[in-house]
Each structure stands twice: as structure tokens, then as C-alpha cells.
Computed example of a mutant assay.
Amino acid sequence: MLASPERRRQHQPWVDDVLHRLKGLDLRPLRAVIPPAGYVPDFLTPPPTSTPSSFENELEVVRATHPSQFVDELAWTVGDTGTPLAWRREMAPLHQQMLDEPEKAVRQITQLLRAYWRLALEPSWHKLHGGLVSDIRSRMRVMESSGAASVFSTLNERIGWHDDRLTVRSSYTYEETLGGQGIVLVPSVFCGPDVLTMLPPLQSMVVYPRPAVADIWRHHGEDRPSPLRALLGGVRAAVLEALVTPASTGELAAKVDVTPGAISQHVSVLRGCDLVTSHRSGRRVFHSLTETGEALVRGAEYSVGRVV
């Protein structure tokens, strides 16, 4: 997305900020494995698991890529006629170095991904992740009430669902009978306007653009008061904002920087207002937003700075 002026438009406030942060960081090794169009090596996009995972844990999956897998997938990228010829020519020396020393290349790519994460994404991740989780939850409610067909048919204009067949409009031709294996649906802030797919024998995955993505950056970089904190107080607002991602009592205490006992008291009040729900798993209690709590958090985010 950073390499494409056309894709930047929806994210311009973020782009302006991030390009300044990235000065001095040589991203060519990353650009060598992420073409502007065409096949992106699958080792870079391990499918999400059913339980929340930290960035470091998922980065470890990338770092553990076997050299033979790296060579096979990079060779596929280099030979893919869907990648721009000018890009292949520009990156040819780097590609050869990586193919000759795959273990070194994987280490370098992992280090750059960590640096890029810290500079470009981590400062905005709470906001980004909250919107993605909200999209997943809303589609789960649609699935529960109207079935899978209603979810597939509303994901994106490039995705279709007819007679139990899922189609994705793409420059590639591929057909597979899943046989009950299932598909992982992944909303993305930055993939638009494309819909990306991962195909068997790997876990089938469809990555689709999160709707209304430009709204995320409406007040990017502006220091504005939180209406949620004015309504509920600092700690309870912080608890709700932190629960965009479900968390245990201990995890919440660390995020909000108060004691577990205080978290329990605040969560009890929020639960009584139907903003939070809790369940026990072994010795730990996990908390998450209800539909009402989620709507309150999202509404507060979009109302910041609005002139009435």
C-alpha cells in the first residue's frame, strides 16, 4: 500500500505520519518479498488461530519458516507473471541473494517486520484492531441470525455466493472442493481494493477490505478529549476501550495499570449495565464487550471532534 499512490488516498493521514517515521529504515528486503501485485509468499501470512495471539508470537511463526519453504515460495513469486516486470527486474539481485542464503533472508525479514511494526503499526494498533474485531463480531451476529450466505454476499463486491459456491474475482484461476475444511475470513485495513486468498493445502483464507476504512484516520494524530471518559470516568472508560480485545482480569489490570481487585469492581459495574460480559475458564475470568458495550465504544470513537 505504501508503494502505491492510488492505494494511499484512503490512508493519507497515516501515510504522511508513517513515511516520516520510516526514514532511515531500508525496506528493500521487505519490498523484495511483497510485490505491488501478484503472489505474496504464504509464510508471511500465517492464518489466525482460534485464540488471540501477540504480534511477537505470530512473528515467531514467520521466523521459524523452513529454508526450503522460503525458497519454494520466493521462487514462485519471482516466476509469477502476475507480478510487475519492472519490479522483478529491480529486485532481481536481492532475490538471488535471498535464494542463495534463505536462512539469512528469513532472519533479516523477521527483523525488518518487527521494526516496521513498531514504527508504522503499533502506535495505531489499538484503533485498527478494535475496528477489525468489531467487523468480525457484526458478521458473526449476521451469521447467527441469517446464515453463512448472508455473510459471504456482503463481504465485498468481488466476493460472491451462489448455490453453495464461493467465488472471488481474481486474476488467477483456481477451483477447489473444500470438503468441510472451512474458510477463515480475515478483515484487513490495508488490502483494499483487492480481496486476497490463501489456498489448499494451506488453510483456506479470504482476506477482505474492512468497510469504511477511511473513517479510521479521520482524527489521526489529533489530541482530543475522550467523550467516553467524560461519561464513565477514566478507569471504566479505559476498561471498555481495552476490551475491544477480550482479556482476563490480570491482563486488564496490566493494560489499565490498576490492581486486579479494582478491575473486578469496575467490571462488575459495567456488567450490571450490560456493557461487559464475563466467563470463567479454569482459574481465570475473561471479559469481553457486549453488543451494547461495543456500540458505545465505537460511537465514542466516531464522535470525537464532531461539531454539533
Rank of each mutant, 00 (worst) to 15 (best):
H66A: 13
L112V: 00
A64Y: 08
G24I: 00
D80M: 05
V133K: 01
L44M: 02
G79Y: 08
S146L: 11
W117N: 12
H219V: 10
R9L: 11
A115G: 06
R89A: 11
T290L: 02
R224T: 00
Q111K: 13
A237N: 01
S124Y: 15
A254K: 11
L202W: 13
A32C: 14
A3W: 04
F152Q: 06
G234M: 04
A247S: 15
T51H: 15
A247F: 11
R224F: 06
R210G: 02
H66G: 09
V213M: 06
P123S: 06
H11T: 00
V133N: 05
F190H: 02
T49A: 14
F70H: 06
V244Y: 13
S138V: 13
R306L: 12
P211E: 07
K23Y: 11
T197Q: 08
R89S: 11
D16C: 02
L202I: 00
A64L: 14
S278P: 04
H95E: 05
R224Q: 06
V168P: 03
F55H: 07
R88K: 11
S288M: 07
V61L: 14
Q69I: 13
L19V: 10
V267L: 14
M205E: 14
W125T: 03
K255A: 15
R284K: 12
P47W: 06
D26I: 00
G160H: 14
K104T: 15
S188D: 01
G24H: 12
G282D: 07
S204L: 02
A3I: 10
V61A: 09
F286E: 04
S54A: 11
T277M: 07
R283W: 08
L240E: 04
P41F: 05
L178E: 00
D80L: 05
H266R: 08
L240A: 00
S264V: 11
T77N: 09
G272L: 08
L228Q: 03
T177L: 15
V206R: 01
A32V: 07
S145Y: 04
R306P: 03
V40S: 04
P67M: 00
L25K: 03
L113Q: 07
M140L: 15
R31V: 08
A120C: 03
F70D: 04
A295Y: 08
V206C: 11
V189F: 04
P200S: 08
T245Q: 13
A32S: 15
V184T: 15
V106L: 00
P36A: 05
L85S: 12
A262K: 10
P46E: 03
H287R: 00
D80C: 09
I34G: 13
R306Y: 12
R271K: 15
A295C: 02
N57F: 09
L19W: 08
R284P: 06
A262R: 14
L296D: 01
R114V: 01
D274Y: 10
A247E: 11
R9T: 05
R284W: 06
G305H: 03
R88E: 02
T154Y: 10
H220T: 01
S145L: 06
I159R: 03
D257F: 14
R107A: 14
R88F: 02
R9D: 10
I34H: 15
E122R: 10
A247V: 04
P187A: 01
K23H: 15
G147W: 03
L121D: 01
R306M: 11
S54E: 07
G272Y: 09
D257V: 13
E73V: 02
G299C: 01
E291F: 10
Q12G: 04
E294H: 12
R89V: 09
A3N: 08
H266N: 09
